[in-house]
Amino acid sequence: MEYFEPKSIGDALSLLSKHGAEAKVIAGGTDVMVDIKFKEEPGALVNIKKIPSLAGITERGGSLRIGALTTIRDIETSALVREKLPVLWDACRQFASLQVRNTATIGGNICRASPSGESLTPLLVLEANAILAFSDGERSEPFKTFFQGPGKSAAGAKGLLTEVDIPIPPAGSKGVYLKHAVRGAMDIAMVGVAVMLTPDAGKNNAQDVRIGLGAVGPTPLRAPKTEALLKGKALTAALIKEAGALAATEASPITDQRSSAENRRWIVEALTRRGLEQTWKAATGKEVA
């Protein structure tokens, strides 16, 4: 295995061009090192940690920009993120353990493209974009199309994720991330559900509802039918119950050693209901009737 520490994005991209699919990008290493130990060594390991200015959280225009090397812990402890993007903050604080959060980066979590990746469903419901660098230039890719399958993303073998661009949701919108795991900590989600709800001006109806489902498909998913069902309506217990059942049908889970597919659908239903109840109450100040 060859090991590289490029000092610029350009150097990194030329290494990726040269080594192609043989190359593996490493940042925090919390996933890559495990793979090296238990699966196999890549031909080339490209450590991007020495590239300056790839870390940090800044507000620009109507967006928060988070550098790919920003650690999960830095996002979790950012007052800006907590205030503007509560759904992302909520996911980051439930991410693995403190030790892992201190090391793992958001770029790594995204490029791993695991369906259960904690930050992924929040980025989907926030309708964020991946800023990707290629040898022929930079482009912005919505996360909706960025994730292509387990471990597969629009960055491909030769692109480098440099930043995440997250439009700040309207004031008054509320978001939660609900994680289902056997252990509360140090555990991979069996199901993760991100819910974001924006009330109308009078706080009488849900002007916009977005639901992200994790670990229940080859990529993190949105639940468009459920979102459409709820849009523009006041959330009642009956409507939320219907939404939960509908969300379960929008998931396409598999059975593995962590959970059966059937259980994953049950949990999607439960957490969607819970997420809607919580965001409705937070956004409107009203209990679900």
Binding site: R183, A185, M186, R258
Partner: peptide
């Protein structure tokens, strides 16, 4: 990673 021992919070 997969053999779940209880963590302190449990």
């Amino acid at each position: 990673v997969d053999y779940l021992m209880p963590t302190l919070n449990m």
